[in-house]
Amino acid sequence: MKKFTPARIRTWFQIIYTIMTNGYAYGFLKGKIYKGPLKYACVPGLNCYSCPGAVASCPLGALQNALNKRNFEVPFAVLGFFFIFGSVFGRFVCGWLCPFGLVQDLLHKIPLFKKRKQLPKHHILKYGKYVTLVGMVLIGSVFLFTGFAKIPAFCKFLCPSGTLFGAIPLLSTNKMLQGQIGGLFFWKLAVLIAIVLLSIKVYRPFCQYLCPLGAIYGWFNKFSLVQIRWEKDSCVSCGKCQEACPVNLSPEQISVSSECIRCGKCVDACPANCLKFCGKREK
């Protein structure tokens, strides 16, 4: 009988989680969005609140909306969600609780193109997500204007989750919105198509190079509760964990790197059982 290892159950976990957080089926049928009380709260992953099925709010959208206010005030509520999700899960959120991460994982399973873990110049490009966080989410939301109104720069110009989960289902059923499609929509569609195509070849390019949420949760990764513990003494240095790691981390780096999304493939691959999921207290 097959063992229930983390990497084996992850895809199903992601699918069930995505259905649960985007389960407002009526919205998909009628081209409307959910307006119930769950939208007072944010989900941990990138999940556009204009997705017809979304039952809660997107943390990045909420952060930008708070920064778009005329009079600046610290967005405590959104920071609260980030601190709780980040401190408990770190980038486990990216690996297990992000609908757009699931989409990229599934795309990467398509047997087309020769697969790559990373893009060339990865060591430089990986900082792209911090540039997006600072440039588009923080500075962009405070200083970019259209007319007199500030704009959520990341949502407006880059977010592929909004196009895939929000725009496409809404525009396909809502005739009133269809009449308003313009250049911006086609720009966002082009971004989405580029990321979709790249995801077939490279493992999670959006998460590795562009996602501001990954940058935020990466900061919590070193001290979050959910960790992958490496027992150095029982390691046989076979290199199988690094080979299996989709972001190419060595066992020394796994528990401390801001790039590890806690997918658990290293745990499955280790023949000596020296890599384990654990809560921080076990250490």
Binding site: G61, P152, K156, L177, F185
Partner: peptide
């Protein structure tokens, strides 16, 4: 504030 934004279709998010 979060709720008010989340229950309106975000035109920026969907690219229009």
């Amino acid at each position: 504030e979060i709720y008010r934004k989340a229950v309106m279709i975000c035109l920026e998010c969907i690219g229009i």
